[in-house]
């Protein structure tokens, strides 16, 4: 067990290092001189050279990376070119906003979709199955930003039940926060149940064909006991892994939902800083999401043996 944990954590470390190199290289490839961006087009050559020296741009790329990486390890990601804010503080405050939406959506989606997928597989090719798999396939095919727009149109504009735009932090006004976040969470929820039902159904179908399920039934166990005790426990693994991937993908793609509902989250910050070519912030956002993605998948893998003890035996 311990060997499994060390092996898996050991795999994540080089990945994290490569991810930070990738982010560094990517942002260095953005055309334009960062010093020029900072000072504007009218800067004279002397102050430009001065600024380049202060930013460490006159050093070799490798030296720059070492300095940047050293700062990164102490949590220093520099400051924003446009607003001068500390990138680490800015990115992490925006990250919390996005994370609460994503986590709530995935949690509710898993609670609904996993049982739904099992039932669909249990009733394979029956009316219930066709309905569930049909709904799921339809839901996966609707892009989140359009689903969000439709909700906004229905509940915000036509019925005026929910606020159309805006956001208040949970700490200031809990009730208000729930009202503002209801539609974004529901949007992601509907999209994710589509993905998770399909996965849960597919992995349940594979288990249902195995001999021990027939054996459990022959023993006289109730269908309920067969499904919960034998089928669920052996078929949940792939869905669990997918939940980790979905979390990361949602963080990567949340910009569109944040744009629809004007939520000041991480995705919106990234898109805005791409517009403004605010490269320290772009760097911070990319790094934050990618590192979270790696860590979430690490956590998912470490918890995997709870559902499938075979994994640690390797």
């Amino acid at each position: 067990m311990l060997r499994f944990v060390f092996a898996r954590v050991g795999m994540a470390v080089p990945t994290l290092l490569l991810v930070s190199i990738a982010v560094f290289v990517l942002v260095r490839m953005i055309p334009g001189d960062p010093a020029q961006l900072l000072l504007g087009d009218l800067a004279d050559p002397d102050s430009l050279a001065d600024m380049r020296q202060r930013m460490g741009l006159d050093k070799s790329v490798f030296q720059q990376f070492v300095i940047w990486f050293g700062n990164l390890l102490t949590g220093d990601l520099g400051s924003s070119i446009t607003t001068g804010q500390d990138v680490t503080a800015l990115v992490s405050s925006r990250f919390l906003i996005s994370a609460q939406v994503v986590l709530a959506a995935v949690l509710f989606a898993a609670l609904v979709a996993v049982p739904a997928g099992i039932i669909a597989a249990w009733r394979q090719n029956g009316v219930t199955d066709l309905f569930l798999i049909g709904t799921a396939t339809l839901l996966v095919s609707i892009p989140t930003f359009w689903l969000g727009l439709l909700m906004l149109l229905l509940f915000g504009v036509k019925l005026s039940w929910l606020p159309v735009v805006g956001y208040v932090p949970f700490s200031q006004d809990a009730m208000g926060a729930v009202l503002y976040l209801l539609m974004p969470i529901a949007t992601l929820f509907l999209h994710e149940i589509g993905i998770l039902i399909r996965m849960s159904r597919a992995s349940t179908l594979e288990v249902l064909r195995l001999d021990y399920v027939t054996h459990a039934r022959a023993k006289g166990l109730s269908e309920r006991a067969v499904l919960t005790r034998h089928v669920f426990r052996n078929s949940f693994g792939p869905t669990w892994t997918l939940i980790g991937l979905v979390l990361g993908n949602l963080l990567g793609g949340i910009a569109v939902v944040e744009t629809v509902f004007t939520i000041p989250g991480l995705g919106r910050l990234l898109v805005d800083s791409i517009y403004q070519r605010d490269y320290p912030v772009i760097q911070g956002c990319l790094l934050f999401v990618a590192v979270t993605y790696v860590l979430v998948n690490l956590a998912v893998d470490l918890l995997y043996p709870l559902f499938d003890p075979k994994v640690t035996a390797e």
Binding site: I21, V27, P31, G252, L270, R277, A290
Partner: peptide, 25 residues
Amino acid sequence: MAVNNAMLAFPGLLLALGLLAVVGA
């Protein structure tokens, strides 16, 4: 494969957003 895995460590759309900042929208 090391480079490949580092790229796979990014959610697809996020990597695309980062690359768009480089190549232009």
